[in-house]
Design a protein around this nucleic acid. Sequence first.
DNA 1: CTGACTTACGAAGGAGCGCTTCATTAGTAG
DNA 2: CTACTAATGAAGCGCTCCTTCGTAAGTCAG
Lengths: 384, 384
Amino acid sequence: MADLRGGDLSRLRQLNSLTAIRELRGSGPLTLSALAERTGLSRPSMKEVTDELMALGWVEEVPPSQGTMGRPARRYRFRADSGHLVGVDIGGHNIRAALSDLDGRILAETRQPVLPGAPLAERLAAIERAVSGCLALSRTSVEQVWLISVGTVGTIDVEGRVIYSAAVPAWRDLDLAGALREVFPCQVLIENDSRLAAMAETRRGVAKGARDVVFLHVGRRMGAGLIIGGKVHRGFGAAAGEISMLPEARWFDAPEHLNTCACVPEGTPPEDAAGYTLAAARDGDPVAIEAVERYVDDLAVGAAAMVLIMDPQMVVLGGGFSRSADVLLDRLRERLERRCMRLPEVRASTLGDECVVVGAIDYAVEHLDEQLFTPDRGPLPVTR
Amino acid sequence: MADLRGGDLSRLRQLNSLTAIRELRGSGPLTLSALAERTGLSRPSMKEVTDELMALGWVEEVPPSQGTMGRPARRYRFRADSGHLVGVDIGGHNIRAALSDLDGRILAETRQPVLPGAPLAERLAAIERAVSGCLALSRTSVEQVWLISVGTVGTIDVEGRVIYSAAVPAWRDLDLAGALREVFPCQVLIENDSRLAAMAETRRGVAKGARDVVFLHVGRRMGAGLIIGGKVHRGFGAAAGEISMLPEARWFDAPEHLNTCACVPEGTPPEDAAGYTLAAARDGDPVAIEAVERYVDDLAVGAAAMVLIMDPQMVVLGGGFSRSADVLLDRLRERLERRCMRLPEVRASTLGDECVVVGAIDYAVEHLDEQLFTPDRGPLPVTR
DNA sequence: CTGACTTACGAAGGAGCGCTTCATTAGTAG
DNA sequence: CTACTAATGAAGCGCTCCTTCGTAAGTCAG
């Protein structure tokens, strides 16, 4: 039930302006006639609307397309460059940042390595360096950034305070949103990284267009993100997807099967062990295959729980181990098939390491849209 | 992002009419001034809207309230009696039906006993008897019924075809919606009964107002229904909530702890065994308590999985065993607290056996609202 | 290069909806 | 009976969108 409310005449104009913007955002430059047809308005009215939007800086004219019959029509397009969005991925070893326009098109990316045990101040400084780097790369000033969207491990409450973070202990109880707001003069959004990755996959990855998606983060730690009805599902206490806490789901220690496999040569750094096992399994090493089988056995229990409870359209395998999806996918499918009523599609992430940053951007775009298209908050800033 | 679309001037009127209807439905009879204030319109405009709605039969005038200062204001109210809704609960042993007005206020209820093994035709006949009974009780003709909403065990696909039903094998592959549509000349909705019970609890039961709710059906069979964002969550293949299929969740055989308890006297009919055990546990029988502990141990695993994955605001315990909620609730809470990051509220259903019928009615109301308040489908039938 | 054709533009006039304003009406309080 | 209160109903205005028309700016055929 949409939040429709009638009202003044001016409200009707507002509604029409917003539909126009939405159409322009959705499909490149459009002529007046095309816009009129899509929005259902007459051409003269459409003209008035676009004139207003141009004056406000939301829309601009582009050169008419040539070679058509008849008088060339003016074309208009959404000014995606009238503002910018920043996405940040705060990982254990790396901090990634990306800058995008208002359509979520990525303009620049940077990465700042950081030691897992680095103190708080150092981490925050690295975040600032990563973001500034992006801005510098595309010659954008920080005032042009409308929204910063951050993904990190752990659970984050509604106000952007970190509740719990196993990977980055220093994060606990930190008012992350507040700390970032002091550095960057704009709105700050914080979300769990698995949820943002899930978002990215449904917006531009392998699950594009799906409404209900379960994203499995398989890597040195296990995590999950849910998309329900096309939107990120946070849960009442922002703790949705934490199935790895349940011993019976057998997720928490699952990676140990890969880490402690006998096939891993002595002296291998612990963070490379699992990767080695997966590679060995691909090459047919029976010991490694045995370890992978046991790993997927465990992975499938928690995954089946999520599938049975949610009945999603698709399960997406992401995170570090998803590089070895060829070794994992069929095995996971086979086990899910056995346990679930209806086997959803099971696919591997296509976005790789950028998954979370890109998801942060997509999350920001969604947030922006929501502000834009929610009546009573009115078309946002004007002619920046 | 609301489904806002601008358009014609008449569209604005439509929007205003709908908000007026919504306000009137929400809070009893209202005067013009009150309506105007709530919708944001001016009084003269409001008058025009209500005149139109009266002409269409959606709204009627009621006598003005007396004893107020100044000229008594006309009062208007939504004509909830201008149409009717029917809810049906197809259980193993009973078929319940209820008739309500368009606000979901229940006007009549009936129950038809039916044998678990009854053939298809007999069951359908019982449904028809139950519904006709309701109509007769409140002297309503079948033409006045806008919507029939049915709850049943098993999974039902989008078109109303039964995919799977453990309790009623004859149901399998039956086009239930189609069969009912042949008998009743109106729209037919089919849903899983646990989901409808969940709906009832969030609409008028113990979880009223909550947006994310997990409903646990505890009884001779186990089931679950999810409410996410205030709406029933079906899942992509209408199979959401089927966690009892997962052996590791330990739900499927959980009731056996109660059924086969040594405390149950020989000769007790099998359907009463669990109830006996629960009652004995309440009275302090240590053997029964032991069985209940084991039962809740199992129940808590699947429940914890749902809580960890969804992070709901509330868990509602419903179904036959919830009559013994006093024996179960604290034990369940204690186990969930141990397993989950954040313990949601855990409460017992307050609606009892009528849960599913009432939920069916609520589901019908929601469906109606959605049709009503979704633009482009326009205010439904006129002056019935 | 010219004329026919196609398509878009822009201005003018009209209808619908909501707003404000003001005199009128129907009650209660003293 | 009079003063006061609050709703009613009618009149006039402004905004938004619509339809209709003549005009402008291209392409295409000869």
